[in-house]
């Protein structure tokens, strides 16, 4: 078999997934303090008030769409009565709506980032790189949807991309499934995997801090002085007092 498909559709995805997982573990251990949204709302709220909720809600819808479209085999959906036509119609309309929301929000946020002085100054290089890949992924995804799903006859990604993703996740990679996928979809997939590899090193880590626990914990949190120590091990020379080892005393 050709090596290029193997590199593109087996090696790159696995490498990116590995970096994603190991990267997050490393970042969490090394840099808990840097693990934040780094919100810039205090600098500017007029644009953010619109852009941020649009982008975030849109991207959450996009995420949900991808889970349904990629991870759930279509036979399962048939079984609960969602036919090919219903799915296609639903996915295309909702998907387009979500894409419009996300892209508009993204555009507002990028405009804000460039034009509002303090926000621009607070933008790191890593942020900029991340925006390029995030933007590219969203752009290719939207273009592919518009070209093939909205105006085209509809590309059956649930026969190709979806089983391929599941084959990757199931450790039985089938790169041949990706061979005839249109270029826009291929680019969307590749930029997405590049983004996954970057993910742990950007502010995107805040996705994994979505504070769901807030719904279930009591309002007031008490902590003892002793267990509030976070990542810090006891300082050298300040370990807890232990009773001396009698054997060592004998040797003296």
């Amino acid at each position: 078999m050709n090596t290029l498909p193997i590199i593109l559709w087996v090696a790159i995805p696995y490498a990116s997934i590995a970096v994603f997982i190991v990267g997050h573990m490393w970042r969490y251990r090394y840099d808990k303090f840097g693990w934040t949204t780094r919100s810039s709302q205090t600098y500017e709220n007029r644009l953010l008030r619109w852009g941020s909720p649009m982008f975030h809600l849109g991207i959450l819808m996009v995420l949900a769409g991808h889970v349904v479209g990629l991870l759930i085999p279509r036979e399962w959906l048939y079984a609960i009565g969602i036919s090919e036509e219903t799915y296609h119609f639903g996915a295309t309309t909702l998907g387009t709506l979500a894409a419009a929301l996300t892209l508009t929000g993204f555009a507002i946020l990028i405009y804000r980032r460039r034009t509002v002085g303090p926000v621009f100054l607070a933008t790191t290089t890593m942020d900029k790189v991340m925006y390029v890949f995030l933007g590219a992924t969203m752009l290719f995804g939207t273009l592919a949807t518009i070209v093939f799903q909205v105006f085209g006859s509809g590309f059956q990604y649930r026969e190709t991309i979806s089983p391929w993703i599941r084959s990757i996740l199931g450790f039985q990679p089938q790169p041949e499934l990706m061979a005839d996928v249109p270029l826009l979809f291929q680019l969307h997939v590749l930029t997405a995997f590049a983004l996954f590899a970057l993910w742990p090193f950007t502010r995107l880590v805040h996705v994994f801090s979505a504070p769901v626990g807030y719904l279930f914990r009591p309002y007031i949190v008490y902590r003892s002085r002793d267990d509030g120590r976070g990542a810090q091990a006891p300082q050298r020379g300040w370990e807890a007092i232990k009773t001396p080892d009698p054997d060592r005393l004998h040797k003296l």
């Binding site: 970042r27 090394y30 840099d31 808990k32 303090f33 840097g34 780094r38 790191t124 890593m126 090193f201 950007t202 502010r203 976070g230 990542a231 810090q232």
Partner: peptide, 11 residues
């Protein structure tokens, strides 16, 4: 300043 913005890195 750590690699991920101001004061990133271990505690």
């Amino acid at each position: 300043a750590g690699p991920f913005g101001s004061s990133s890195g271990p505690a």
